[in-house]
C-alpha cells in the first residue's frame, strides 16, 4: 500500500457478483491506487469472503465525493431503520 490507508471490519451479510450470491465475512475500506478509472487514488471498497478464495469479493472504487455521498446515505438508511423499529440489534444475519 502506498497511502497506508486501509481498514477492515468483520461483517455478516451477502454479496452478489457474476458467479451469484455468496456470504461475506469482511469489508475493507482503503484509499489507494484504483485498478480502474482515471484517478491516482480512490476509495477502495471490498466485500469479501477469503475463506472461499482470493476472488470471492465484490470490489467498488469510488471518488471521494461519491464516497462521502454514500456514507451519508448509509448513515441515513441505518438511522431510518432504527427510528422505524425495523431493525432491532437482536436481528442479525443468519
Amino acid at each position: 500500500m502506498c497511502t497506508m490507508i486501509s481498514n477492515t471490519v468483520g461483517v455478516r451479510g451477502a454479496a452478489k457478483g457474476r458467479p451469484g450470491w455468496f456470504s461475506i465475512t469482511k469489508a475493507t475500506v482503503g484509499f489507494d491506487h484504483p485498478v480502474n478509472g482515471g484517478l491516482e487514488h480512490a476509495v477502495l471498497l471490498d466485500f469479501s469472503n477469503y475463506d472461499l478464495d482470493a476472488g470471492a469479493r465484490i470490489a467498488v472504487e469510488l471518488d471521494l465525493a461519491s464516497a462521502r455521498a454514500l456514507v451519508d446515505k448509509l448513515t441515513a438508511a441505518v438511522a431510518a431503520a432504527e427510528a422505524g423499529g425495523f431493525a432491532p440489534d437482536s436481528e442479525t444475519w443468519r
Binding site: S6, T28, S48, A54, A59
Partner: peptide, 15 residues
C-alpha cells in the same frame, strides 16, 4: 488469483 484480487486480499490484512 488475479493480481487485483490478491492485492485486495493483502490490503484486507494490512499489507
Amino acid at each position: 488469483g488475479t493480481s487485483d484480487d490478491v492485492t485486495a486480499l493483502v490490503r484486507s490484512q494490512g499489507g
